[in-house]
């Protein structure tokens, strides 16, 4: 485990993986777009709007996968005081928030032609909305402290508390939704998936995942450099006593 805790080793590993995941992202999403937009039929019930599914559903997957990544990284950060795990959690949050946002907006764009309204309190969309709020809270907390390590630790606890709550929220929202099922609104059922639709869905799903991995690696690299910058700045302050006053402003 601690073999990867060494930032230098991680940086070397990341540099080795990164070109491959970046290339895979381009290829997979390119193929997904071809099969999704051109080489697959329209759904017999939902028509061409079914093509929104190929960006909507993978966004939802990634929105949830990013939160799980954050929670696992947070657990590792709290249990093993793993310095990289903190950075992984902090780096994954904006990516997850972006995907959750995409899921909500594309869901709304899919809902307008299907439900006749931009927003319905559909169980899945509502759960994603709450997940989006959890991301916002996490990011706000991580950036709310003058000392970034304190922010990382506090947000790690929050990510775990949120992660424990996610199934409870999901269950509650599902229950609430069956209780208040509006009669006029038909659910967007997942269309009975034809193999010609499954292929682009999977391609996009894997492509989004490799995109996530690529961006995550770059962000973690960036965070490692940021902490090095902070360390050097701190040392400059301590080594030159005259600079303390100005250093406090910088720090």
């Amino acid at each position: 485990m601690h073999r990867f805790a060494n930032p230098a080793r991680f940086l070397r590993l990341a540099a080795a993986i990164q070109p491959w995941t970046a290339a895979a992202t381009v290829l997979l999403i390119g193929a997904g777009l071809y099969f999704g937009l051109i080489a697959s039929p329209a759904d017999y019930q939902q028509g061409q709007t079914v093509r929104i599914m190929y960006v909507h559903v993978p966004s939802a997957w990634l929105g949830m996968a990013c939160y799980s990544t954050m929670a696992i990284a947070s657990a590792m950060a709290l249990i093993w005081k793993h310095p990289l795990a903190d950075l992984i959690g902090k780096s994954a949050a904006p990516i997850g928030a972006a995907f959750t946002f995409l899921c909500l907006v594309t869901g709304s764009l899919w809902g307008k032609p299907m439900w006749g309204t931009w927003w319905a309190w559909d169980a899945r969309l509502t759960s994603m909305l709450i997940l989006f709020f959890l991301y916002l809270g996490y990011m706000a907390l991580a950036n709310a402290f003058d000392d970034p390590t304190r922010g990382a630790k506090a947000s790690a606890v929050l990510a775990l508390a949120g992660f424990v709550n996610v199934p409870v929220i999901k269950f509650s929202v599902d229950w609430w939704n069956t209780l208040h099922q509006p009669a006029s609104v038909t659910k967007i059922g997942m269309p009975s998936i034809d193999p010609s639709m499954l292929l682009p869905l999977l391609l996009m799903g894997v492509g989004f995942t490799t995109f996530f991995v690529t961006v995550l690696l770059v962000r973690v690299r960036s965070e490692i450099m940021a902490s090095k910058i902070r360390a050097i700045r701190l040392m400059q302050i301590h080594s030159t006593p005259g600079a303390v006053a100005s250093g406090e402003v910088v720090g």
Partner: peptide, 23 residues
């Protein structure tokens, strides 16, 4: 406990806690 020492702790607290209150 999480917002101790944070900037704008009061507002931040509601952002953290309200989604968890939904169930």
């Amino acid at each position: 406990a999480l917002v101790l020492g944070a900037r704008r702790g009061g507002v931040l607290l509601s952002l953290l806690v309200l989604p968890l209150y939904v169930p």
